[in-house]
Design a protein around this nucleic acid. Structure first.
Lengths: 174, 174
DNA sequence: ACAAGTGTAAAATGATCATTTTACACTTCA
DNA sequence: TGAAGTGTAAAATGATCATTTTACACTTGT
C-alpha cells in the first residue's frame, strides 16, 4: 500500500469516527505513520484531504450500488452497515460540520449526492421497466432514512426500509 | 428575554449553522451579548451548553409533533423545514461530531431519539386504531430520510416521504 | 559520483481553543 | 450603610490548532 492510500485510509477512519473538525493533524500524522511534511505534500491541506477521503468513499460506496433491483439496493446497504457500521452519511456530516463554507468539501458532497440520486433513479427504472421519478425520490428517502435511523435503531431500520420499498414498488407496478 | 434563554437561542443558531466543534466560545459570547464569566456561570461548559441547546430543541420539536395522524406528522415536518430550514438532524450531527464521547451530549441525544421513536409509534397506533411496530419503524425511517434527503433534494423529499407514508398506511389498513 | 526526488524528525509559526481570573460597577434588600 | 448577588470588560492560562521550515538521510537513474 502506497503512502497516499495509507493516508486516505487512516484519514477516512478518523474523520468517520471522531468528526472532521475534532480530528487534529497530529492524530492524522500519527495514524498515517508519516511526517507532517509528507502529509502536506500529498494532501495539500486538511480540507483537501477530506475531499480526497470523500472521493475515495464515493468510489467504494457507488461500486456497491451497481445493482439491478431496488431490493438489491437495500441488500447492499445492509452489507455496508454490517461491514462499515452505522454512523450516518459521512458526506452530509462533513457538509454540516463545515456549514457548507469549504468549497472542496461542498463540491465533493454535491458530486456524490448527484451521482447517488442518479443511480437510484436508474435502478428504479431498470427494476420497474420505465422511469418513475416520484418512486425514485421515495426510494432515495428510504435509503437515506435507513442510513440515519440505523444510528439509533440498528439494522431493524434498514430491513424496515427494504420492506417499505418493496411495497411501494409493487404498488407502482400495478 | 432572560440571559439563559438568549444564550440558548444564540448557541442553537450558531451550532446549527456552523457545527458544534467549529463554533468557538468567542463567537458564542459575542452572539449572546454577554461576558464569558456570565456564560460559564449559566452553562458550565461548552458540552453542557450543547446539551442545554438540545434539550430546548427537543421541547420545541416534540411540541410540533403533538398530532393525531401520520399525515399530520409529515405536515409538521414540512412546516418545520419551511421555518427552520434543512440542515439535517442537530441531534445526530452533535453525536457524530463528538464521536459519542461526550456524555452530556450522548445522553441528550439518546433521550430525544427515544421520545421521538415513542411518539411515532403512538401516532401510527392512533391513526391505525391499533399498534403496528413494523409500520412505525417504516414511518420513522421515512421521517428521518426526509430530514436528511431534504438537505440536497429540498422540499420534494418531504412530500415524497409524506406520500409514501400514506401508501404504506393504506396498505396496513386493508 | 552526483543531482534530483522522496522521505523523516523536530522545531517554529502564529492563531485560536476552552476556561479561569482579576478588578470593577450596579442593583437589591436587610 | 453595607453585604450579597449579578453583571461587565479584559487579561491570563496553557493547550492545541493547521501549517511551514530547517536540517538531514536514503534511494534512484545517469
Amino acid at each position: 500500500m502506497n503512502l497516499s492510500t495509507k493516508l486516505i485510509t487512516a484519514a477516512e477512519r478518523l474523520f468517520d469516527r471522531h468528526g472532521y473538525t475534532a480530528t487534529g493533524m497530529d492524530r492524522l500524522i500519527q495514524a498515517a505513520g508519516m511526517s507532517s511534511r509528507t502529509l502536506y505534500k500529498h494532501a495539500g491541506s486538511k480540507a483537501q484531504l477530506m475531499a480526497d477521503v470523500l472521493g475515495a468513499r464515493d468510489r467504494r460506496f457507488m461500486a456497491r450500488l451497481e445493482v439491478g433491483s431496488v431490493d438489491a439496493l437495500f441488500a447492499a446497504l445492509e452489507d455496508w452497515v454490517r461491514v462499515e457500521g452505522t454512523r450516518g452519511c459521512l458526506f452530509l456530516r462533513a457538509l454540516a460540520e463545515t456549514g457548507g463554507d469549504t468549497p472542496e468539501i461542498a463540491e465533493a458532497v454535491a458530486a456524490h449526492k448527484a451521482a447517488f440520486s442518479e443511480r437510484i433513479a436508474q435502478v428504479v427504472a431498470a427494476d420497474l421497466g420505465r422511469e418513475n421519478p416520484r418512486l425514485a425520490e421515495q426510494v432515495l428517502v428510504l435509503f437515506e432514512g435507513a442510513t440515519h435511523a440505523g444510528i439509533y435503531r440498528g439494522a431493524e431500520a434498514v430491513s424496515a426500509a427494504r420492506e417499505a420499498a418493496a411495497v411501494l414498488l409493487e404498488g407502482a407496478r400495478r
